[in-house]
Amino acid sequence: MASIRDVAKRAGVTVTTVSRVLNNRGYISEETRKKVYKAMEELNYQPNELARALYRKRSYFIGLIIPDVSHPFFGEVAKYIEYYAYLRGYKILLCNSYLDEKKEKEYINMLKRHQVDGIIMGSHTLDVEDYKKVNLPIVALDRVLSEDIPYVTSDNYRGAVMATNLLIEKGCRFLAHISGPLQLNTPANDRYYGFMHVVSQRSVKHVVVETRLNKFDINEYKDIVSQLFKKYPEIDGVFASSDLIAAVVIRVAEDFGKKVPESLKVVGFDDVNIASIMKPSITTVRQYKDKMAQKAIDLIINKIEGNNVEVSNVIPIDLIEREST
């Protein structure tokens, strides 16, 4: 395996010059850079990234911990986070916590051992003090970890108000809201509060059910929706807290002889890819996942560089009407 000395010898420069090229330090002529890169290529030299990180006091790696990359929302956000991190010269180390406290702790420790410069947290199973002890810049994604850790979210409350009002304006008289687990402290809980505000203000009959904690389980969603339709067959409008749940609602509705949108209208949340390709396509509240990701990267890099940032960062939403209403 080639060493930095071998590269220096092949390029006809000093070891210090090769080090400066690798770490982009000091003035190096373009001709010298080309010589060093050519020697590295010929010798198949791979720099020791950990050593470079220690020298530069920065690794240019950012940890990303999310509940489940297979969930459409988190998968799409992770894609954009990687994209915007790359544009800024950073790489992403991706971790799936599955909302498991033990795994989340292990991943945080692993990321620290790998000298990441900061962590974007899309998972939230630990106590506030645990996050404060991480001793690295942290930005929360669609989570509130503590009053002084910056977070990025969408305008969940306004989105819920818009979705619920649309269902009522479309003639729905008995609404169901399928919420995420409200015991988890996330900005997404504002979808529940927005729904409750509208149905209370407009005196509309309603019911709310919650999904279980630590689960993004299609079979669980099917069971919840089936029980909902069995117990309340007169439901004619559903506001689901995600497009994935909305898709399940539409599928289960067929089994109960409910036609969408004729006898049942459905609104989701997120506007992930499946929302527009479903049949019927899903009316939904669009979260701008690209903007959320870009803001998260801006915040974490600013934190890494020691700059002050806003704690609350709320991205506007839009209601996208499609065939399900």
Rank of each mutant, 00 (worst) to 15 (best):
I235N: 07
D142M: 08
T164K: 09
Q183F: 09
Y193C: 04
S203L: 05
G237W: 07
V209D: 01
Y84D: 11
F239K: 11
D217F: 12
S146I: 10
A296M: 11
R251C: 01
G26A: 06
V309F: 04
T153C: 12
K205T: 12
V314I: 15
Q183N: 11
I65L: 12
N219C: 06
V198K: 09
D255G: 12
R33Q: 06
K34Y: 13
G26S: 06
L175T: 08
S19F: 01
H197S: 14
V139E: 04
A275V: 05
Y193G: 02
V144C: 06
N165R: 08
A160W: 07
D148N: 07
F195L: 08
A51E: 00
E30M: 11
G26T: 10
R20V: 00
N214R: 15
P280S: 08
T211G: 09
Y80A: 10
D68N: 08
I168Y: 00
V36H: 01
E42A: 02
R202W: 06
L50W: 01
S59G: 09
Y60H: 15
V36W: 00
R143F: 10
L264G: 05
C95Q: 10
N48V: 01
S179L: 11
L166A: 02
V272N: 08
R56S: 05
A140F: 08
I62V: 10
R322I: 13
A78V: 10
G12I: 14
A11Y: 00
S312H: 13
Y288E: 05
Y221F: 15
R5Y: 05
L54A: 03
Y86C: 04
K230C: 07
I300R: 08
F256V: 04
N307Q: 14
F174S: 02
F61E: 04
D290C: 02
N189R: 14
L87H: 12
E82L: 05
Y90W: 02
I245Y: 11
I62P: 04
Y60A: 06
I4V: 00
I120G: 04
E101N: 03
T16A: 15
V7G: 03
A2N: 08
K102L: 10
T32L: 13
A85D: 02
A293S: 10
V139H: 07
N44D: 13
L141E: 01
L213M: 14
E262C: 05
A11V: 02
H197I: 02
T284I: 09
V134H: 07
T14V: 07
G159T: 03
Q201M: 13
Y98F: 14
D100R: 01
Q46F: 05
F61Y: 15
S19I: 00
I235Y: 11
I178D: 01
I218A: 07
M121F: 11
G75D: 03
G118C: 11
A275N: 07
L228Q: 04
K132C: 04
G75I: 12
V69H: 04
Y131K: 06
I62A: 03
E30Q: 14
